[in-house]
């Protein structure tokens, strides 16, 4: 009798354990399945968003190449309008980049290393052209350096006219592209450990020697990538140039302006110029990415 009771209670215990295990499994599945589904749904959603974003960016670029057969591009390259625009754009953008680097490097270094009265205001002014609409920049330059402008008025008295000349193209490009260089250069200088500068000074180097032999080489990759960004920005400049320099072939008609002008007549010329600009943009991105990856390890 006693053994029977023991068997029954053992049976009850076993069945209870099985029942609990079964319930755990059921609850586990109930929790697991929706969380796995949610994870898959999240991943699918993200993949869809990424695909949509990529398509949105790639589609216009692909369309540009699909709509422009190679022979048409080659033929359009001989168009005087294309050649003039290409020559002018490359010349002005190169000169702009040189001016921006020469003027912007000391500005960026001072901004990165020193505190002075009005620094916040100066930094905001440097960044202003990035958020200012290019057309506004064009008008601002016109009222400053145009024939009746506050500075141009005096220059005009000496027979110097800036507006609607190639110089105006360069001034407009310098105005809009300088923040791209100065911001990058400032960050690069800030990243150079002050200990390098101090070490150079204690070893007998003057401030100037330290700048050219220690700080500049360490910050160089950042400076080059900033210069490339400024070159790309000046190459694509449209609004400020058309307002301040006008749209004269061979003199002030840069590639973006030529694209706009050709759109009203020969679309092939427009497409040819657009493809050249896209190709340059690709090269710029590759160069900047390669250079920013090569950062010196700290010693």
């Amino acid at each position: 009798m006693a053994s029977n009771q023991a068997d029954v209670s053992r049976f009850d215990e076993r069945s209870l354990v099985e029942l609990v295990n079964h319930e755990h499994e059921t609850i586990g599945k109930a929790i697991c399945i929706p969380s796995r589904t949610r994870e898959v749904a999240l991943k699918a959603g993200l993949a869809l968003l990424l695909t949509l974003a990529m398509t949105f960016i790639a589609l216009p670029v692909v369309a540009l190449f699909l709509k422009s057969p190679l022979d048409t591009i080659v033929r359009s390259l001989h168009d005087p309008m294309v050649m003039d625009a290409l020559r002018l754009s490359l010349t002005t953008s190169t000169l702009t980049t040189l001016i921006v680097v020469l003027m912007g490097t000391p500005v960026a270094y001072v901004s990165a290393r020193f505190h002075y009265f009005g620094k916040e205001l100066a930094d905001s002014l440097i960044d202003l052209p990035v958020i200012m609409p290019p057309a506004v920049a064009g008008i601002a330059l016109l009222v400053a350096f145009g024939r009746m402008g506050i500075v141009g008025h005096y220059l005009n008295a000496f027979g110097i006219s800036i507006a609607f000349t190639t110089l105006a193209v360069i001034i407009a490009q310098v105005f809009v592209s300088s923040p791209f260089y100065i911001r990058q250069a400032r960050t690069s200088f800030e990243d150079v450990d002050l200990a390098f500068e101090n070490a150079a000074r204690t070893l007998g180097a003057s401030r100037v020697y330290t700048f050219f032999h220690v700080i500049l080489p360490i910050a160089m990759n950042g400076l080059i990538s900033g210069a490339i960004m400024a070159f790309a920005r000046s190459l694509g400049e449209f609004g400020a140039t058309i307002m301040f320099a006008g749209n004269f072939q061979g003199r002030t008609q840069t590639m973006p302006l030529a694209i706009y002008t050709a759109m009203q007549g020969d679309l092939d010329v427009s497409l040819c110029l657009a493809i050249i600009l896209v190709a340059i943009s690709f090269v710029v991105i590759v160069l900047v990415k390669t250079l920013t990856r090569r950062v010196y390890k700290k010693c």
Partner: peptide, 10 residues
Amino acid sequence: YVFQSYALFP
């Protein structure tokens, strides 16, 4: 002067 980080020019 030997700096804590050594400050060798990288």
